[in-house]
Write a protein that binds this DNA or RNA. Structure first.
Lengths: 162, 162
DNA sequence: TGCGTATAATAAGTATACTTGTCAATTCCC
DNA sequence: GGGAATTGACAAGTATACTTATTATACGCA
């Protein structure tokens, strides 16, 4: 019996669920450290929201959530915090008064231009232990897996129709 | 300019940070659905904690946190909830009264035996879009990356010395 | 036209996953 | 043996990431 116990611990650390969580912890930690080094107060979620808004100004919160695969309720809080920082502005859509149109402010746009290259530059360091070829392979596999299971998450990616 | 905008959106969805977050959403969602189907109220974190306690009964909270790569503060809340459910018991260590020893209750042990095979069985479905060979490759790459960057996360894995 | 359905957002609640700060108990070192 | 440094846990605060419920608005259709 002690044998099976020992194995079960070893087994745990090979499970995809565990490994993915670890990588997520590492990824967010690296992002956070880089932002702190730049003396910025911005989370990965907030960066994603700003990026999507740059490409799609004036979209409503639900559409924004779909573009970056977030829950609609969660995005509300994110927009609140970005709004408090003066990076985005919310206004009521005249044609559909249920909807809030969200756009970057000039400050938000300036900040995004400043940090986008930083965020792009930090990405490879998330997979620092891998060679260049392995990194590319990992990204391809992750894309394939995420695309295949998109609808199994609570907040699926809903890309805008082109 | 519209060209670079279009590219920047495309680029975003290929970043490791984004893909890892998506996979984590998918992974936790699948876990949650399976537990709900079994009429159980247990999160991935809670399962990991129970598993580690089965192999290492009576360890203190900080050691437990290190074994599953969690923050010490976070684990306190997890233990609280497991304790409320009657799955673990906390007692003060006689030799170091700062430390709380945590152990599985008989109920916790029974539950763990019941769900461990379920959790193991659900793991492949997290990477459902991949072939068997790709899954093995992904796991190997993820393990390598997580191990290499272990100390860059806020809560590194601290395995027990054998 | 009006009523039921659908949608957008918010509210309240739970559970991670951290941060910093505090406190108590212990251990180290002189 | 006694003070300093360390350690384990908790408290309070922030930020995702959900759930369910509620409110307001819009839309479809008979």
């Amino acid at each position: 019996m002690p044998d099976s116990d020992t194995h079960s611990q070893t087994q745990f650390h090979q499970m995809p669920g565990y490994l993915i969580r670890r990588l997520n912890q590492i990824s967010t930690s690296i992002f956070q450290d880089r932002m702190a080094a730049l003396q910025l107060d911005l989370t990965p979620v907030q960066f994603a929201a700003l990026s999507a808004l740059q490409v799609n100004p004036g979209i409503d919160q639900a559409t924004l959530a779909g573009l970056i695969a977030y829950d609609r309720v969660t995005i509300g809080g994110v927009i609140d915090r970005l709004s408090t920082k003066g990076l985005v502005a919310r206004s009521i859509n005249a044609r559909d008064r249920r909807a809030r149109q969200v756009s970057l402010t000039p400050e938000g746009n300036a900040l995004l231009h400043r940090i986008t290259p930083e965020v792009a530059a930090l990405q490879p360091s998330i997979l620092d232990g891998l060679t260049e070829a392995e990194r590319a392979l990992f990204i391809a596999l992750a894309q394939k897996a995420a695309a295949a299971s998109n609808d199994r998450s609570r907040a699926p990616l809903r890309p805008r129709k082109p």
